[in-house]
């Protein structure tokens, strides 16, 4: 019975994905990526075709579509955000890439350095895709020429993993670091739906239901994604502390939290994973524009996003609404019946069976979630 329910949820989620893709008149590209101008993706979208024509089997384009992900920003760099932002173009041209024999694209750092060198003393238009709702924007970054008497830092330890870009930087440090990463990696997030263990690890650490999303954990253990990955990591950290990085959609900020996992290996909250639980678009209040005009150092004040539209990126609000309404209508009847079903099963089981069942950490199907 439970397996059937879980399969139903997966079918439902897949149908949402398919509907969204079809509604955008693009058969393959994930709706989350369709805010990116097609010309910025052309170089990457062409290479898999070439690879296929050579008889090499290629994976889904949504899994390989990549950008220069911001992995670190300086304290004084306010234009970019780590984790969420990807550079997908310069001056409305794609990131220069080269393809290997398997059809996979990699950034041409030599040409990228040339672009920055050419813009010394000017601003460079950088095309950014953000994982917050899958939105696209432009940032104008000032490229400051390096003074002639500036000396480059040369590491005494030769590190094979960090080769030079092949061309001397004629500009000062930009205040951010990047790594070529698939865009899909930023969708591996776990939405806190509710706290189910009073005074449990989640509640003690201050996780906020509906508002919070776990986007990563110490050492990047969540980087590969997967519906059960968080659950597996938490279970493996029983009796230990675990550092999680949490995004709050109301305050539009990321904070680190430390949770102490008990001997049962549970986080104490239900989490949602998948298309419906990606980071939503940030919505600012109308007063922000006025505030920016009056204040030299404005702090935008995000407005709480209603849960009805929270998971729907702004670029495609229309298609999912009917689907969402259906699930809302079901909420009053079907889930209660399912809860009764599960509770009935628990009451009849033996004590040993109960403890074994509690380790399963099964997701309640009506919310497309998993329990940790």
């Amino acid at each position: 019975m439970f397996r059937i329910a879980k399969n139903l949820v997966r079918t439902f989620e897949q149908s949402v994905q398919d509907t969204l893709a079809l509604s955008q008149d693009s058969s393959n590209l994930d709706a989350f990526f369709q805010s990116i101008p097609p010309n910025l993706l052309s170089a990457q979208l062409e290479s898999p075709v070439d690879a296929v024509s050579e008889g090499v089997k290629h994976t889904n384009v949504n899994e390989t579509l990549s950008g220069l992900r911001i992995v670190w920003v300086d304290e004084m760099q306010f234009q970019l955000q780590s984790f969420f932002d990807y550079i997908v173009g310069f001056n409305d041209d794609p990131v220069p890439v080269v393809s290997n024999q398997h059809g996979f694209s990699y950034p041409d750092y030599r040409r990228i350095t040339s672009i920055f060198n050419e813009h010394c003393g000017r601003t460079l238009k950088v095309n950014i895709w953000s994982a917050k709702g899958g939105t696209f924007r432009d940032e104008y970054i000032s490229i400051i020429s390096k003074e002639s008497d500036d000396l480059d830092d040369v590491s005494l330890n030769h590190d094979e993993r960090r080769p030079s870009s092949g061309e001397a930087h004629q500009f000062q440090a930009l205040g951010f670091k990047v790594q070529w990463t698939p865009l899909i990696a930023s969708t591996f997030t776990y939405h806190i739906l509710n706290v189910n263990i009073p005074d449990g690890p989640a509640q003690s650490a201050g996780l906020i239901p509906d508002e919070d999303y776990i986007i990563g954990c110490q050492d990047g253990l969540l980087a590969t994604g997967g519906e059960t990955l968080l659950q597996d990591i938490v279970r493996s950290r029983a009796n230990y502390d675990l550092v999680l990085y949490v995004y709050n959609k109301v305050s539009d900020c990321v904070r680190p939290i430390t949770v102490h996992i008990g001997p049962d290996g549970r986080l104490g909250c239900n989490v949602g994973y998948g298309f419906l639980h990606r980071i939503p678009t940030v919505k600012h209040c109308p007063q922000q524009a006025q505030q920016q005009g009056q204040d030299d150092n404005p702090v935008p004040v995000p407005v709480p996003v209603e849960s009805e539209t929270a998971f729907v990126p702004s670029a495609f609000t229309a298609p999912p609404v009917p689907t969402k309404k259906k699930s809302k209508n079901k909420k009053g009847t079907q889930p209660l019946a399912m809860d009764d079903y599960f509770n009935e099963g628990r009451d009849k089981s033996s004590t040993a069976a109960k403890s074994a069942e509690s380790d399963i950490l099964a997701p309640p199907p009506q919310k497309q979630s998993s329990s940790d």
Binding site: V71, W72, Q179, E211, D219, G220, N248, V254
Partner: peptide, 30 residues
């Protein structure tokens, strides 16, 4: 009760992913 003051203190903070295990390819460039 959600502590908004505490949350707003993290507004300008960015997570450092340079030491994370990653599915990205190639070196971290700056």
């Amino acid at each position: 009760e959600v502590d908004r003051v505490m949350l707003n203190k993290w507004r300008q903070w960015n997570v450092d992913m340079t030491t994370w295990r990653s599915i990205g390819s190639g070196p971290i460039m700056e």
